[in-house]
Design a protein around this nucleic acid. Structure first.
Lengths: 375, 375
DNA sequence: TGTTAGCACTCTTCGCCGTCGAGTGCTAAC
DNA sequence: GTTAGCACTCGACGGCGAAGAGTGCTAACA
């Protein structure tokens, strides 16, 4: 909108200011920037440029005689156009940590969600921010692999379902006690035969009728069993959420006010809100960044959330969101999320393996889905 | 040790000081106590008594010209001798909340630990402190109720075990793929027959041999299956921990320093430490109170922990600990824990239903297991 | 025309200091 | 044994001035 974007020098200065501010959390003055190697302008020049950037809304001033700090719009421009996609982790993340991740991917049947949780822990450790993992966005894409009804006591049984991503679900069935254990086993076998390989929503009354016919159990008597199965499956659709490193937020000076910190931590504990927050971004593969006021949740206005959605072979594993102060080390967070993607999913980024080159230094592989797009 | 305990007036004053301090968190002065209804002494008298109490170690002074605050020893005397056991909840805890607790006790097969978790949530809500629930102290007392091996794919199966407290466990079995699904079912049936009703540690090689014999599966081929079962059972013994309302600590002014708050919250997240902390007290039925420096965990010196262990029909369900600042509303916490016990376990306190009468006003039903006993 | 040096100005931070008030300990009177 | 009175202590609070960082503007410079 304003002219043709920013000229090169303004970009360099803006990037320098934000980098500096992310590192120090101090409002940054013209002198600091001027003394940076490769800058080569006097404080006065920088001052003029900074005043311009402030007019354009990329920077703000806490008070008249302080340095500048980035605005949400400034951060947005920064993540969209200024940061290189670079391995900014600084170290090869302790091989065995990654080992954990890989191992839990392939290891065994069990809660498939484990791997996302482990990845989330790793990411929190790598970034020193809070990491929120949400699984169960799979919706109706998963298929039933095996199914078994286990008699427990008269009138009570347990349904166990294994899905094609190896998630194991179980749920209790309260059934007509006229159905004996042997009969239940028969029902179990037939259901297994019929349902295996199907998606949950494909199960219909015809199939149930067919089970009724084959086993000789009346449909009415069969219904509680089927209901039990459905309940079990419904459970499967329930999203699970796992939060890692919430306390780490307290390390950051922006939350040195206990009241503020408490507010944020309480929000983080609100599972419904967090699920919405993370899921909202999981429609698209790749990274989504929400900066400050771009977050719809009031009270998260001083926070940023970076979300990545992971899927393997088209099966959605879940999403991981990193939550930190607006003054977040975005390059590091992005690097961490992508690093885990590479190791977890197998090296293929959704849009191809190489990242698209952006402008200026290297361009970020970041989809701009924020509310405040570049204008 | 010092003379014969405290005389009646000193007790009244000490109780008044601690009550007041718990309520206001301000050092309490002689004037405040003097003006209390039913006190009937001038500030000067109170002052003398308070000076005595300070000499005896029950009170301390933050600085010369401030009021008195209780020492750990003061709190210890308070919980041991001064507080009445009274329903200090202030309200009938929202019937439906308790409904939840009761319902989850009887309702259904599922993780037995659910009920302790629900109770823990309730307690945290009632007390406004952090509540930590630890389950799995059951050790070897549980029996196998039903057992089933579910074939999943060649070489892979899932073992599902239901224990007599209705806990459901499952674990993956990697077995010799020469054992087909039908054979597995046969093994499953025989294992179920043999193991049901037994305690885990009662399973021995003879039983396994007998299964091998009955099914015709070689013992060597059977071993992976049995190992899988054992692993599943081992899982059962693992303690689970659930923390509720950790953020609530931030509401209390003693944690208004972020650094301090962070330290405590990090400790709370250390599951190993918390399990030890809670379990350590769970040897005895009833309540155990740890005040300030009585806690062995450094960093919890300004906190108190009140722990209750719950068991029904001799089966240990688990323990719930309430963690808060030393300046904790002990009567309320005790009342909450006992209230839940009554509703959860069925009204019987371990030592009989009526609480033993202590001295002074009503005597507390609290076991003194603290490090600093009354001297 | 773009860049820079210089300068006056603004605004926050920090330490200093005196006042205020709550609370104490001690003594003497009741 | 209890209480009134009083001098004393010590932290909390607010005003004040110095220090320092950073700005915006103007004028000089290449």
């Amino acid at each position: 909108m304003e002219g043709f974007e920013l000229d090169d020098r303004k970009k360099r200065i803006l990037k320098a200011v934000i980098d500096e501010y992310i590192e120090t959390r101090e409002p940054v003055g013209s002198r600091t920037i001027s003394k940076l190697p490769d800058m080569g302008y006097s404080p006065a020049t920088i001052r003029n440029e900074m005043a311009d950037l402030e007019d354009m809304g990329y920077l703000t001033q806490p008070h008249t005689s302080a340095g500048r700090i980035p605005s949400d719009k400034g951060y947005r421009f920064y993540v969209d156009k200024l940061i290189k996609f670079e391995e900014k982790l600084g170290f090869e993340p302790t091989a065995k940590e990654l080992g954990d991740v890989k191992a839990s991917v392939q290891r065994e049947i069990g809660e498939m969600t484990d791997q996302i949780r482990v990845a989330s822990e790793l990411i929190s450790r790598l970034t020193e921010y809070t990491s929120i993992a949400v699984t169960g966005t799979a919706g109706g894409t998963r298929r039933i692999k095996a199914l078994q009804i286990v008699p427990v006591e008269p009138g009570k049984a347990l349904s166990v379902i294994v899905l094609d991503d190896d998630a194991v679900l179980n749920s209790v069935i309260q059934h007509d006690s006229s159905i004996g254990p042997e009969m239940l086993m028969k029902v179990s076998t037939h259901c297994n035969l019929l349902f295996a390989g199907h998606r949950v929503e494909e199960i219909n009354m015809d199939m149930i009728d067919s089970v009724s016919e084959a086993t000789g159990v009346a449909r009415t008597a069969l219904m509680p069993v089927v209901d039990g199965l459905f309940e079990c499956i419904k459970k499967a659709e329930n999203t699970e959420i796992h939060t890692e490193g919430a306390v780490k937020l307290l390390s950051h000076p922006e939350f040195s006010d206990v009241g503020k910190a408490k507010g944020i931590l309480e929000l983080i504990n609100r599972e419904d809100l967090m699920v919405d927050l993370i899921k909202e971004c999981s429609t698209s593969d790749g990274l989504v960044i929400r900066i400050g006021s771009e977050n719809k949740i009031e009270g998260l206005n001083e926070c940023s959330v970076v979300t990545a959605t992971y899927s393997v072979n088209g099966v959605n594993l879940g999403s991981i969101g990193v939550l930190g102060p607006t003054r977040m080390d975005y390059p590091r967070v992005i690097a961490a999320l992508e690093y885990v993607r590479k190791r977890l999913v197998g090296g293929e980024l959704p849009g191809g393996n190489a990242l698209p080159e952006g402008e200026l230094p290297g361009g970020a592989a970041v989809r701009n889905e924020g509310v405040l797009g570049a204008e």
